[in-house]
Design a protein around this nucleic acid. Sequence first.
DNA 1: CGAATAGTGTCTGTTAGACAATATCGA
DNA 2: TCGATATTGTCTAACAGACACTATTCG
Lengths: 243, 243
Amino acid sequence: MTDATQYPPFGVTADLVILTMRNDELCVALIERRAEPYKGQLALPGGFVSRHGADRTLEDTALRELREETGIEPHEVHLEQLKTYWTLGRDPRQEVVTVAWLALGPIQGELQSGSDAARADWHTIDAALGQRLAFDHNQILRDGIERARAKLEYTDVAATFLPRQFAIADVRRVYEEVWGVELDPGNFQRKMTGVFERVQDAEPRNVGRGRPAALYMRKAREYRDASGLVPIEPPFRRMDAAR
Amino acid sequence: MTDATQYPPFGVTADLVILTMRNDELCVALIERRAEPYKGQLALPGGFVSRHGADRTLEDTALRELREETGIEPHEVHLEQLKTYWTLGRDPRQEVVTVAWLALGPIQGELQSGSDAARADWHTIDAALGQRLAFDHNQILRDGIERARAKLEYTDVAATFLPRQFAIADVRRVYEEVWGVELDPGNFQRKMTGVFERVQDAEPRNVGRGRPAALYMRKAREYRDASGLVPIEPPFRRMDAAR
DNA sequence: CGAATAGTGTCTGTTAGACAATATCGA
DNA sequence: TCGATATTGTCTAACAGACACTATTCG
C-alpha cells in the first residue's frame, strides 16, 4: 500500500439483480446492451460509479441505477450487497470490478431503458438462465437467486416481494415459487402469523373465490438487522415441503 | 457503460479479516502501518490487486496477501469473500475500493510483516475493537466477526479453526468463545457427533486430565456448498445456551 | 481416593408436519 | 347448493434442553 499510483486503474460498476414476482413467477430485470462489448445481448442493469462525483457511497450507485431502471423509490425495495466480481480481462475495454447488488421488491410496472440499454424487460428466471448473458452475469444472477432462496429460510424477506399489505397465502406463494416446492397451507399459516402483524381495519381485499384472507404487514417495531430484515424464528427449513 | 474511460479510476485492494483461536481466545491479525495515511495505526492486512499482473482473480490477491502475512498455505484455511467497501474519500491518496475477505484457520505461528507493515501481530477481538483502526477497518472487522458468528449456526465452519483432527470439546470451545456463551457439554456432544466423522485409529491425544476424548474430522464426502462448508442440521441456535 | 473431563441415559415440554375439520366467500 | 380458499384443531413423532449418571484419565 506504499504507493497506490503504481497499481493499475480499475473501473467500478454496480450491477443489479432485481427480482420481483409477476403472475406468480419469479422474474429478473434484464437490459439489452446497446453498445459493445456483448452488443445486443441481455445483461443485468448497472453502471459505473460516480458519474461526475454524484455517488458518495457504493450504495448510492446501486440506488441510482435502480431508480433509473425501474423508476422505483428506494424505500420500497430491499437492497443488499451481493458479491464483487472480477477476473483478468473480464471486460475487454479496461479492468472493471463489479459490485453486484440484490434488489427485491413489489415492482409492478414496465421497465425504462437507461442510456446504455436498447430495451429493458422482465424475464422469468428460467428464461434468463437458459441463455448466455453478457459478461459473467449468468453467475451473478445464479448467486443472487441463491442468496434470495437462502434468506427466505431465516428472514421475513419474502414480504419484500409483496405490497405493503398482503395475505399469508401471498407469502406462501412467494416461498413456493422461489423454492420450487409446495408448502402445507395450514402449517404455513400458523408459523407466519407470528412473524407478521395483523392489519385490523383494512377491508378484506377480495380477489378470487374462497374465504377472504386477513391482511398482514411486516412488523415495524421488531429487531431488524443491518439489512433491514426481521429474523424469523428458528428454522423455516427448505425441506418443509408438503406431501 | 458506453465509454468506460470517462469514469474515474479506482485502486482495488483485498483486505483480510484473519481470525484464529489462540489460548481459547478469538484473535485477529493486524499490522501496524509503516506509511501514511494512518501511519503507525493498526490495520487489517491487505494490498492492491495485481502487482505486475500476477493476480488473475480477486481471490488470487486475497490468497497472496494471506500467504505473505501468515505463511500459511491456502488449502489449510477457509477463505470467503466478505463485503466490499467504498465511500468517497475513504482513502486520501486516491479512490480505493476494498474487497474484504474472511479467513479462518488453525494458524499457530507468529505473523510475518509484509512490505507495507512495520509489524504484524495477533490481537484479541476486544483489544482490536477497543481502539481506532485505520480506514474503516473497525467496521470491516465487526462485519467479519458477525459473519463468522452467523455461520456457526448453520455450517461446520467452527472446525476450520481447529487442526485436522480435533475433539468435540474443542469445537464446543470455539462456539463458546465466538458466541460468548456457555453450552451444555452433553447435548453439544450428541448434536455434533453426527456432523463430523470419527477417526478410528489415531491414538487419543492426551492433553489435560480427565477422560481422553475421541478424535473427529470434517466429513469429506458430504455435500459442501460453494464456500466449502458443510451445512449442519436444522438449527444450532444461538440461544441454545446452558443455564 | 478425588478432581476433571468425556460421553451416555433419561425425562419433559415444545414443535414440525400430517391431516382433518371448520369458516366464509363467489358462482 | 358446490367449489375454492382461509383458518383452526388435533395427533404423533422427533427433538431440544435440563440434568443425572457412567467412563476414564491424572495426581
